[in-house]
Design a protein around this nucleic acid. Structure first.
Lengths: 158, 158
DNA sequence: AAATCTGCGGCATAAAATGCCGCTGCCCTT
DNA sequence: AAGGGCAGCGGCATTTTATGCCGCAGATTT
């Protein structure tokens, strides 16, 4: 399947407003509602759209702490990565886990209730003997930019 | 305004599925559609819900590169942060910018078309004389975990 | 204990989604 | 170059959903 300009525009608009009505979306992309809806369904079915999500202002709900953590493993066999990942997947507060190049192995992103909870989680992970050699924590003080969407425009020049 | 258990449940469900119909949402939280919609509207109006977004599988659209970049500024006056931030805000490919502890540094998250584009952007930023002392790049090889939602449950024990 | 207030469910109306159908323009075949 | 087939469009009818209104119940206050 090949995406044309209209498909990209649809993805762009749905990133900006995931709850736009099909009628409004159709207007924005210069289609009538029927073919517009057909395209959206197709984009979902083919996996270009993975889902829809509300963006919650978690700061308003209570104090939270975001931390980026660089983790180095002791060994780098397949099994070492798999074991680490299996443990990390069970931690609700880990909202991202990336395998990265450049001196460290994993970059994690935590959202926790506070420094205490973060500390507890990291103690548990290091005690678990899942091959963590060392880690370094970047505690987030402020997040001036947090976009919910990917830069479709600059990537694909719509 | 104070949120009760039902409000948290609504936020939780809307994070999982931002395009759920009000009728279905009402069933999930054991309300009838009317009061459920009223709560959702209120949560939006009060800023607990900042918006809705489609999650795009950007990898299917073409090759992309994600990079975490740790930036150190030369000086740490108000004006230095402001100038850096103003420049970074103009870069479409920066989807996150966090002020982190450990020497008043920034952690950026880029999504670019490839290492070439990333390199170009970083050259431009360093040449711009916005006070960047040095930076270190973590190129993402793989992202085993990328959650679109915050850990509401573990944070607020619903 | 009475009054009030907040929040609920049910109902009616307006809006949207969704499936169907026929038309049009493009591409492939001959 | 002409004809046939096909993909994709717009319009319409039906079903589903959103949304505003009203009366009721439980909790809180006086």
């Amino acid at each position: 399947m090949k995406l044309d300009r209209i498909d990209i525009k649809i993805l762009y608009e749905l990133q900006k407003n995931g709850r736009i009505t099909n009628v409004e979306l159709a207007e924005l992309v210069n289609l009538s509602p029927s073919p517009c809806l057909m395209r959206v369904k197709k984009l979902q079915q083919e996996g270009y759209i993975e889902g829809y999500s509300a963006q919650i202002n978690i700061g308003k709900l209570g104090q939270t702490l975001t931390v980026f953590t660089e983790v180095t493993l002791k060994n780098h066999r397949q099994i070492d990565f798999a074991r680490f990942l299996a443990a990390v997947e069970k931690v609700d507060q880990v909202i991202e886990c990336h395998l990265v190049s450049g001196g460290y192995d994993y970059m994690l992103k935590f959202v926790t209730a506070g420094i205490g909870e973060y500390q507890t989680i990291m103690e548990r992970l290091t005690d678990m003997d899942i091959g963590i050699d060392k880690y370094f924590s970047f505690v987030v003080l402020k997040s001036p930019i947090v976009k919910a969407h990917m830069p479709l425009i600059s990537l694909f020049r719509v």
